[in-house]
Design a protein around this nucleic acid. Structure first.
Length: 423
RNA sequence: GGCGCCAUCGUCUAGUGGUUAGGACGGCAGGCUUUCAAUCUGCUAACAGGGGUUCGAGUCCCCUUGGCGCCA
């Protein structure tokens, strides 16, 4: 598939993710970076990070490292990085060119681009097809502000040209500005890149995802216990689909499968249930040591355990977890006694019988525990289970016998006896 | 208000003129399981509406409606 419209511009695919450092980028924003990355890598091209910090009033310095961290955590490494505030001379020189061409005029200290009459502005958008605007609807626009900083439109066009960007993959909201960009390319006499306008992710309210709509950053999701692989996989499928019915892909597999022609036109709605499903899947897939490292990172309780015991516990609870931060919830019984109601009076006999059988339990065989107990009493197995649950555990527990083995006989007996003391 | 983008199950989507409209999440039911999960099986549910074009439209065209975006 040949998506380069201007072969003279560059045979090489070069693509950029150009965030404004006005805060921590939310997840929808990072999806744009993902698509840029996937396309670049699928074409053996380059992925460039460009910090668009020309709006001084909205500039938040701390957001730059957050942007970088967000990309890194997902594995979206860039080949090159630029920051617009350090390229003011470039914009200055290019402004001079437009001045000489008489394409701009001074407007109270700011420089405005003059929109002349002429034929319609159109381009072949990779996802939307032919898009056309009349020049009549475009007013003269500022390209360099009175503080000497360029506007988004100007800096972006100049940079895309200078950095030899072959494809501009950005949000749909830029469709309306693209005619202005085309005007600039035309005025400079440069060939425009191929435009790929992708629909934005919508929030529950069907409004574009934004901080205000409650959009979180990938960093927040990571902190909440989501895995980078899950986030990547989920995001990739929100607006793009592979050929078959497969849904689980690693980043590298996505690179291999990715193509622009399978990008969707309509805006997807962020669906947490699906993200949760992906996360569960990857929680099951990742290696035990990796999982343990991640759990230790956020669970102070896990840190108190030795690796051997922690490993056993993780094996018992990993299938139950949706996110890593669920660990303590499901592993609760290993850290504290059950705080459930003590056994009812009629269950005390059951508990006593349980104690007896646990007493002779050799701890080597888990399965024989139940057999022993049944042999020693006439009580139904379900009651045995309930006794254990009520006295020792909470309502929901990891596999009981395996859990007993991790807890050890002494601790189990102690817990039951303690529970029986409660009036 | 002007301009533009979009429209298949509740959600993510497949579909490129002829399909019983497929898959996934969720939900529901069941199997397995002496808890909870995991897992397996089944079910549920969609082409926004109206006109065309065509032997035949989810697929092509127009209008309406609705949602969203940019500018003012």
């Amino acid at each position: 598939m040949n998506q380069v419209t201007d072969p003279e511009r560059s045979r090489r695919v070069r693509v950029r993710y150009a965030p404004s450092p006005t805060g921590i980028p939310h997840i929808g924003n990072i999806r744009t970076a993902l698509y840029n990355f996937l396309f670049a890598k699928s074409q053996k091209g380059q992925f460039i990070l460009r910090i668009e910090d020309t709006d001084q009033s909205r500039f938040v310095p701390e957001s730059v490292p957050k942007i970088e961290e967000s990309l890194k955590v997902l594995g979206l490494d860039w080949d090159d990085k630029h920051q617009q505030s350090q390229r003011l001379d470039v914009y200055g020189k290019n402004l001079e060119i437009l001045k000489k061409k008489n394409a701009v005029y001074d407007d109270g200290g700011a420089w405005k681009f003059k929109v002349e009459k002429g034929k319609n502005l159109k381009w072949a958008d990779v996802v939307h097809g032919d898009v056309e605007f009349s020049r009549d609807v475009i007013a003269d626009f500022v390209i360099v502000k009175s503080d000497k900083f360029p506007t988004y439109h100007f800096a972006s066009v100049v940079d895309d040209h200078q950095m030899q960007i072959s494809h501009v993959i950005r949000g749909d909201e830029w469709i309306s500005s693209t005619p202005k960009h085309l005007l600039l390319y035309e005025s400079f006499g440069w060939g425009p890149p191929t435009f790929v306008h992708i629909p934005p992710i919508l929030g529950e309210s069907k409004k574009k995802l934004s901080k205000r709509e409650g959009a979180k950053s990938v960093l927040e999701y990571i902190d909440e216990g989501y895995l980078p692989q899950a986030l990547v996989n989920f995001l990739a499928l929100l607006g793009w689909s592979p050929k078959g019915d497969r849904e689980l892909f690693t980043l590298n597999e996505l690179v291999a499968e990715f193509s622009l022609d399978r990008l969707n036109k309509n805006s997807p709605i962020f669906n947490l249930e699906k993200l949760n499903w992906f996360n569960k899947k990857y929680l099951q897939k990742i290696s035990l040591p990796d999982l343990m490292a991640k759990i230790k990172k956020i669970s102070s309780k896990a840190q108190t355990l030795d690796d051997q015991k922690l490993t056993k516990i993780i094996e018992l609870v990993r299938d139950r977890m949706t996110t890593i931060s669920d660990f303590e919830k499901y592993a609760k019984i290993f850290f504290e006694k059950g705080k459930e109601k003590p056994p009812q009076r009629q269950k005390i006999e059951n508990a006593k019988a349980a104690i007896e059988s646990i007493n002779v339990w050799n701890e080597k065989s888990i399965s024989n525990l139940l057999d022993q107990w049944i042999a020693k009493s006439k009580i139904q197995p379900a009651d045995f289970k309930n006794t254990l649950r009520l006295a020792v555990f909470a309502d929901n527990t990891p596999p009981i016998y395996e859990s007993l083995a991790v807890l050890k006989k002494e601790e189990v007996l102690k817990r039951i006896e303690d529970a029986l003391k409660i009036p």
